[in-house]
Write a protein that binds this DNA or RNA. Structure first.
Length: 445
RNA sequence: ACGCCCAUCGUCUAGUGGUUAGGACACCAGGUUUUCAUCCUGGUAACCGGAGUUCGAUUCUCCGUGGGCGUGCCA
């Protein structure tokens, strides 16, 4: 039988990493097995479900390339089918009507948990058993006539022909009850695979209070979807050898449910960042270039001011040192404007020191006199000046860097200067000297 | 309280009835570089505790401890 799995989020609020990791595992499993990956939007809670949240789910999946094989099912359209099953259970004496909990709301339809023990096999955790005494009867249709999650979930999984239910292990308790429902309905019980949770920095489950856990934020910060997909795949799963950086196809080829761990894991932003850098460097130049331009224009810079060849040179210089799209405005903006801001720390350390202005003035004089402005020429000149005047090269290079870029770090100085060109370099040194005089530097936005 | 699930470096993880318990991120030191990043070298760092089984337990069993989940007419 062909594998059919589904991601079944309830569209209330933003998609966080725990949700999407469940989607990813379903997706990888389906693709690995040449099966189908489906989406079911569990929007039966009309109070809390929103269109914006549905869009959030769709956007997150699209961003990560988690393409589904059939049109999404919206659970809210399935009420009649759910109620029909409830009626059937009622007719066959497997459910009854009562005001459970004496709420005074009227009679609900309640599924009777059969005697004995409830058991199912979990792909990760093995044989799971629970005594029926510990499982109270289950409301499946509210007194207002609305089907409850448990009923809808099971009925729809049956309808969709789901063969493997892969979801968070916070559903384990529900599963004991669900298998009883499958039996009552007379449908085959699917395989279950309950994934460990992802916890926050404090080792606690994610709540709406935890920032930085929403998929949309990672996208907006400039993470690459493939890097994010790779990283999240490794939260709870590993291929077994020491392989970590994998493209989508590799993940699909190697994925298996059996290799999923059964304990919770914690997100490590530093490692995600590192992995994103790996993917950035590996990006084809044209793709990086496109993202670079976009990021630059998002940050308010005009990447076209100095032409395509210039832009291409900057891109070549910056790709290997870029970790996030969001950093590009800060790290590369100075290539595209003469009114760039300064990193206050770098300015203080490298510019606002005695004697720096004199050095800069002298260097400007030196550079102004060069016939040729290639990186080699500039380097030879600057080093020569240092030797002739007995000044350590660091005392020349560092002020020069900050004066011309506003930053304490960046690409190779001489390549950078050569690319900026003689006129702009000299003008920038002048500007820096003037700013040193005033003692205040415009900050990087 | 009861029931269920879980437990290897700071983090993500590999692994085994006998291993110097492996890798990655992070961190530290060194090399490379003018700087940052990259790159190379090296280093610090883990089997939750106690019993039991065994010639031998990180590994198997039990009991604790800790964490999570559940005990909704939420999903």
């Amino acid at each position: 039988m062909s594998v059919r799995v589904r991601f079944a989020p309830s569209p209330t609020g933003q998609v966080h990493i725990g949700n999407i990791r469940t989607a990813i595992f379903n997706y990888l499993f389906a693709r690995h097995e040449n099966g189908e990956f489906l989406l079911r939007v569990e929007d039966t809670d009309r109070e809390r479900s929103t269109d914006a949240a549905v869009k959030g789910v769709l956007d997150a999946m699209a961003w990560l390339g988690l393409d589904v094989d059939e049109e999404p099912m919206y659970q809210s359209t399935r009420t009649d089918a759910h109620l029909a099953v409830a009626q059937d259970l009622l007719d066959r004496g497997l459910a009854y009507k009562a005001d459970k909990g004496d709420t005074g709301k009227g009679e609900a339809i309640i599924f009777r948990i059969p005697e004995g023990s409830l058991r199912f096999t979990d792909v990760l955790k093995g044989e799971l058993t629970k005594s029926a005494e510990d499982v109270p009867d289950l409301v499946i249709v509210r007194s207002n006539g609305a089907p409850v999650f448990h009923l809808a979930n099971v009925v729809d999984d049956i309808e969709m022909g789901i063969t493997h239910v892969i979801r968070g292990d916070d559903h384990i308790e529900n599963t004991y009850r669900h298998v009883a429902l499958y039996d009552a309905i007379g449908a085959p019980v699917p395989s279950f695979c309950h994934l460990p949770m992802i916890v926050n920095q404090h080792g606690k489950p994610y709540s709406k209070r935890d920032g930085s856990a929403f998929v949309g934020e990672f996208r907006d910060t400039g993470f690459l979807p493939d890097a994010f997909l790779n990283y999240l795949s490794l939260l709870g799963w590993s291929p077994g050898d020491d392989l970590e950086v994998m493209d989508r196809q590799r993940l699909i080829d190697l994925f298996s449910l059996e290799r999923i761990r059964s304990s919770a894991s914690q997100m490590d932003m530093k490692k995600l960042m590192w992995m994103n850098g790996e993917f950035m460097r590996a990006l084809p130049r044209e793709m990086f270039s496109t993202g670079f331009e976009q990021s630059l224009s998002d940050a308010g810079f005009d990447s076209e001011v100095h032409g395509d060849a210039y832009k291409a040179s900057v891109v070549a210089l910056m790709q290997e040192r870029t970790k996030l799209w969001a950093d590009i405005g800060r790290d590369s903006g100075f290539f595209f404007t003469e009114a760039f801001g300064f990193d206050p720390k770098a300015a203080r350390k490298r510019l606002q020191k005695d004697g720096v202005t004199e050095v800069l003035v002298a260097l400007r004089e030196l550079l102004l006199g060069l016939q040729d402005f290639s990186d080699v020429t500039v380097e030879t000149a600057v080093r020569g000046y240092g030797e002739a005047n007995d000044i350590p090269v660091g005392s020349l290079v560092n002020p020069l860097r900050v004066a011309c870029s506003g930053l304490g770090h960046g690409p190779g100085l001489f390549e950078m200067l050569s690319l900026l060109g003689q006129d702009r370099v000299c003008a920038r040194i002048e500007r820096a000297c003037a700013l040193i005089l005033t003692g205040t530097f415009p900050e990087i936005p």
